[in-house]
Design a protein around this nucleic acid. Structure first.
Length: 497
RNA sequence: GCCGCCUUAGCUCAGUUGGUUAGAGCGCUGGUUUGUGGAACCAGAGGUCCUCCGUUCAAGCCGGAGAGGCGGUACCA
């Protein structure tokens, strides 16, 4: 057979293609996949227990259904991934699960039970610069209630968010759900006499950075502006020192307990109509959280929480992982917010014209899983039992043994490579196999199998000093009659789990 | 998007004033032993020195442009 190269005019002219994935689209392997699936499972079971029903929508939506991005200019892919369908209409990959829900609710409003309560999980896509724990394709797990106007519906989301965080694996004082309301933020904005929308945005964005930049950084952003470490300058809101002080006093009104924070906020925010509405809203949420039995430590009122700027209309909340995460070099990695939500009363109205109050919460599964992976909280999984193939002319014995194990419900494979015994043991080791099973001529003649407990073997090997001795010792290894193989292997596999 | 730093083997890095065939350690693959995972011994594979253009008799090294990576910042519906 002669190797004939196909002439492909589109192929690169020289050598190999680069084996690489686009940034922000990481490969996910066994450990992470399993951890994420488990996390989704736990979070959705919380949502189900609170009475939410499942809904899946497709990856693509019409671009205009997703909101303000109408990709009619030169950059149709700013923020979202968009492409033109056969019929020339622009479609976009969903960037969250809320906008598709709003579309679905509007489309099916007549027939839905109202309020409509659904959960959803799946990948979403954002065309942004990735960072640690930040991807261009990532998993979210949401719950929303559409058609519920009262603050107790928001409180339900908040309490459920805390429960979801716990279910996902965050323990006591390893996370906090921070809660605020847009009404108080609006009250502060009008309190300092900021009138134009641009200044509003700048002030809100500055507040949002409270936890990261601290008081002085935020003060700079509220005033003249701030110079960052790289020498880049961010223009400030241009407030005078007195106004800056007022805004900061509000932003720092957070206290130990929700009750104390409410009091401090009452002082900081003044007596306007909007301020009172905001305080009433938080007070109602506090009362409902009480009724839900939500632990004081899980949920805090924090006036510096802002969240995204467009569609939230009332309470906003954010789940933050407090546990310190260190990367392999020992540097602190800032994962930040791992979930968020709020009230969005105008989102469905975009389709129906009718105002439909809605509130929801989203857990960032990818981010949470990244945080857990970085801090070493994802356990290595056990691999399959590996049956070594010791007879290269005829692998039948190995195949038969593997089949026997599988039929007994044990995850097992026969070695399929072409290498000798040593590489086969290395393979079993690398697969994380709890057990290697050997059936060679000797064993067949004696009617036995040799079983090696790889975890036990590794343990014993640690005490062995010389290579020769190691080879002699065959740690963790024993013979068993063929008839007892399944029982003995199962014993070890179960102990390893 | 803006600012800064970086780019030689899978990884961590050497590479002299520009001068034969670009190296090491670790890792990987295998063999020694068609029967043993590590830290023994032996061997092997693996490089468009990020790319292109320029300077030069000669470029991993010098100049320019671009790409990619990392960090910060902005944005995050």
């Amino acid at each position: 057979m002669s190797k004939k190269k196909k002439q492909d005019p589109d192929a690169p002219k020289t050598g190999k293609d680069l084996a690489r994935s686009p940034r922000g689209f990481p490969d996910r392997r066994e450990g992470l996949i399993h951890a994420q699936a488990e996390m989704i499972d736990r979070v959705t079971s919380v949502y189900r227990r609170w009475g939410f029903e499942a809904l899946d929508t497709g990856a693509f939506e019409y671009a205009d259904a997703l909101g303000k991005f109408l990709p009619d200019d030169d950059r149709p892919n700013a923020g979202v991934f968009s492409l033109q369908d056969d019929d020339e209409q622009w479609i976009s990959l969903r960037y969250d699960l809320t906008a598709p829900l709003a579309r679905f609710a509007a489309e099916n409003w007549q027939t839905l039970p109202k309020p409509f309560r659904r959960y959803a999980s799946g990948p979403v896509w954002r065309n942004e610069k990735p960072g640690p724990g930040r991807f261009r394709e990532f998993l979210q797990c949401d719950a929303d209630t559409v058609g519920a106007p009262g603050p107790h519906a928001d409180a339900e989301m908040i309490a459920m968010a805390a429960e979801a965080m716990r279910a996902a694996g965050a323990g006591d004082s390893e996370f906090v759900v921070r809660v605020n309301t847009r009404r108080l933020l609006n009250a502060v904005l009008s309190g300092v006499g900021a009138s134009d929308a641009g200044t509003h945005l700048t002030i809100l964005r500055a507040l949002d950075k409270m936890d990261r930049l601290g008081e002085s950084g935020v003060a700079d952003l509220l005033g003249k502006g701030r110079m960052d470490d790289s020498g880049d300058f961010t223009k400030g809101a241009g407030l005078d020192p007195e106004q800056v002080k007022r805004v900061l006093a509000f932003a720092q009104a957070g206290r130990e307990t929700r009750g104390e924070t409410l009091e401090a906020l009452g002082q900081a925010v003044g007596t306007g109509e909007e301020a009172q509405a905001g305080l009433d809203e938080l007070t109602a949420i506090a009362r409902a959280l009480e009724a839900f039995g939500c632990p004081e430590g899980d949920v805090a009122f924090d006036p510096s929480v802002v969240r995204g700027l467009e569609y939230y209309t009332g309470p906003v909340f954010e789940a933050e992982l407090l546990r310190e995460t260190l990367d392999e070099d020992g540097n602190t990695v800032r994962i930040g917010s791992v979930g968020g939500g709020g009230r969005y009363d105008d989102l469905v109205a975009r389709f129906t014209g009718e105002k439909v109050p809605a509130t929801g919460f989203s857990v960032g599964i990818s981010r949470l899983a990244t945080a857990f992976a970085i801090s070493g909280n994802i356990d290595a999984l056990n691999g399959p039992v590996v049956v070594l193939n010791l007879n290269r002319e005829d692998p039948s014995d190995a195949l038969r043994v593997a089949t026997e194990l599988r039929n007994a419900g044990i995850r097992a494979e026969a070695y399929m490579g072409g290498s000798g015994m040593r590489p086969q043991m290395k393979y079993a080791d690398r697969r994380g196999a709890p057990v290697a099973v050997m059936v060679g001529e000797d064993e067949i003649a004696k009617g036995v199998v040799t079983i090696k407990d790889l975890k036990e073997g590794a343990k014993q090997a640690a005490a062995i000093k010389s290579n020769a001795e190691y080879r002699e010792a065959r740690p963790g290894q024993f013979e068993a009659p063929r008839s007892e193989m399944i029982a003995r292997v199962r014993e070890i596999v179960e102990a390893a789990e």
